[in-house]
């Protein structure tokens, strides 16, 4: 499991980085989205991934249910907010790219006038 996860996170980070370094602003935003997903998967894998069972869900069956079998709720809480925030950031970056395109007339950052 760890190996597959590590390979996935590594590949996603590599591809995200490659996209972020492109000239095209939309590709940069896409790259940041990929990087976000990679970071989220990394965070979740830091909590340790166990085979899904009735106890592994961090929502206790009842008040007072035994609790030590659950998946790590802390990383889930972190990722939950990260998802929503990354959406806000992506929207902002898209708007920024759009405005940059409007001002400069091109999506290519290397063609911008100083």
């Amino acid at each position: 499991m760890t190996l597959a996860l590590a390979a996935t996170v590594g590949a996603l980070f590599a591809l995200g980085t490659f996209l972020v370094l492109r000239e095209d602003l939309v590709k940069v935003v896409l790259g940041l989205a990929v990087l976000t997903q990679a970071a989220n998967v990394y965070l979740i894998s830091m909590g340790g991934i166990t085979e899904g069972t009735a106890d592994s869900v961090p929502i206790l069956a009842a008040h007072g249910a035994k609790a030590h079998e659950t998946a790590d709720p802390l990383v889930q809480a972190l990722v939950l907010t990260a998802i929503v925030i990354s959406f806000g950031m992506t929207a902002f970056l898209l708007t920024l790219s759009y405005r940059a395109y409007q001002e400069n007339g091109t999506m290519n950052v290397t063609e911008w006038e100083q």
């Binding site: 760890t2 590590a6 990679a38 990394y42 894998s45 991934i49 166990t50």
Partner: peptide
């Protein structure tokens, strides 16, 4: 560079992620 970043992330996950039964 992307491959370097990917390798770093790969090694980081391998080294830091818990094995799962801890």
């Amino acid at each position: 560079l992307s491959i370097a970043v990917g390798v770093t992330a790969f090694v980081s996950v391998l080294l830091t992620a818990p094995s799962g039964d801890g």
